[in-house]
Design a protein around this nucleic acid. Structure first.
Length: 384
DNA sequence: TGTCAACCTGT
DNA sequence: CAGGTTGAC
């Protein structure tokens, strides 16, 4: 039985990319709700599916480490000639069977020889996924000089960067997000992949599958199938959106929206059932390279009012399209063309699961307070 | 334009 | 109620 890779164990082949922690924090970036596919499989080790492969990632102060698992079909069987995931019996909510012919990997001792072109391909895949060419530290500096509140929060929540995700995975994951919370979305996306996605490999009894194709999602049986899996009313949105894309645009349509201006792409997405402004902005920002897109949910609305005294819609009960756009414009004016990136830092900082980071920061501040001049506290906490 | 209920399911 | 969307006043 193959196991999840651990850097300290040294049993598997690891490769690395120079990358400072300030440029990328895996725990925050993979756990802030922009992707639902990564799990912590060891201390600070994250395993997930990306680019049709299964990866485990971890990091040290100045290095990003990664291990890519060989899939059953070998590296040749990525995008394109995937096995069709059946819609048949396994759609009744039961565990996908037929996994017993899974071949054991034999890369335990690094026996798998990987060509240098393959290595370069995988490294490029990872660099593109994390958009490492975008200098996050420089962006933090710009946002901090324009915004005092960001200066404070950003000094604690460093390394939160936008992923460049696959548009298909991003769209259908966020259609699931409506009226829902992160942990349940994670479970739903996992069931979606296990049921309709191509199997990739098995690690410690966990089956990893690729995200389903639009074709698979467009099948008319999918709605009933997903309702059985607990998707509720979102089941119909998923199938209908997939069907609409296939019947009136084609499988490459989503991807093609990368070369279209932000607002145009957002409007195109909004024609899909289950896709409103918020979901369209998530997909635009997280998979279509629209760094200025600012997804406004009830949470971000609170942040705008509470931390920025943003007047937009302050006297209203519901988040109308008008107010939605005003809040987005407010943040774009404040933060500039990468406003969506900045927004995710504050969003991350507001998540319940990361509140402990603030407590640590407060304790460290108090230590500074005792050591340094007690009268100069307010300044010392700001200039960091 | 703005407001409201309904939509599924789990905590 | 939960990181929303839709359809109807």
């Amino acid at each position: 039985m193959s196991q999840h890779a651990l850097l300290s164990a040294g049993a598997k082949a690891w490769r690395s990319i120079p990358c400072f922690r300030a440029e990328l924090r895996l725990d925050l970036t993979l756990g802030c709700g922009q992707t639902f596919r990564w799990r912590e499989t060891g201390k600070d080790h994250w395993t997930g599916v990306m680019g049709g492969r299964v990866w485990t990632l971890t990091q040290t102060e100045d290095t990003l480490w990664y291990h890519v698992y060989s899939s059953q079909g070998g590296p040749g069987l990525v995008n394109g000639q995937k096995r069709k995931a059946g819609l048949g019996p396994q759609c009744s909510g039961k565990r996908l069977k037929g996994m017993k012919d899974v071949k054991e990997e034999d890369d335990e001792l690094g026996l798998d020889t990987v060509s240098s072109v393959q290595v370069e391909k995988e490294e490029k895949l990872l660099r593109d996924y994390f958009q490492l060419s975008v200098k996050l530290v420089d962006l933090y500096k710009e946002w901090s000089s324009a915004d005092q509140h960001f200066n404070h929060t950003g000094s604690i929540f460093t390394g939160v960067r936008m992923l460049r995700q696959d548009p298909v995975e991003c769209l259908f994951s966020f259609i699931c997000s409506s009226n829902n919370h992160i942990s349940r979305i994670q479970g739903m996306v996992e069931r979606l992949c296990n049921t309709l996605g191509t199997p990739l490999c098995t690690l410690d009894d966990t089956h990893y599958h690729d995200f389903p194709s639009i074709q698979a999602l467009a099948d008319s049986k999918v709605e009933a199938c997903l309702r059985d899996l607990g998707f509720g009313y979102r089941a119909r949105f998923l199938q209908q959106s997939a069907n609409l894309i296939m019947s009136s645009h084609g499988p490459d349509w989503l991807h093609s929206l990368r070369s279209v201006p932000y607002l145009q792409a957002r409007e195109a997405l909004r024609t899909l059932p289950g896709v409103g402004l918020k979901v369209a902005d998530c997909v635009s920002l997280m998979s279509l390279e629209k760094s200025e897109a600012v997804p406004v949910d009830t949470h971000v609305w609170q942040i705008a009012k509470r931390d920025y005294s943003c007047a937009a819609g302050s006297g209203q009960k519901t988040l109308t399209d008008k107010v939605y756009n005003e809040i987005g414009d407010f943040f774009r004016k404040l933060w500039g063309p990468y406003a969506g990136w900045a927004h995710s830092v504050l969003f991350c900082a507001d998540l319940k699961k990361f509140q402990n980071l603030k407590e640590v920061a407060i304790k460290e501040e108090k230590i500074v307070e005792v050591v340094a001049d007690p009268e100069d506290v307010s300044e010392s906490s700001r200039c960091h």
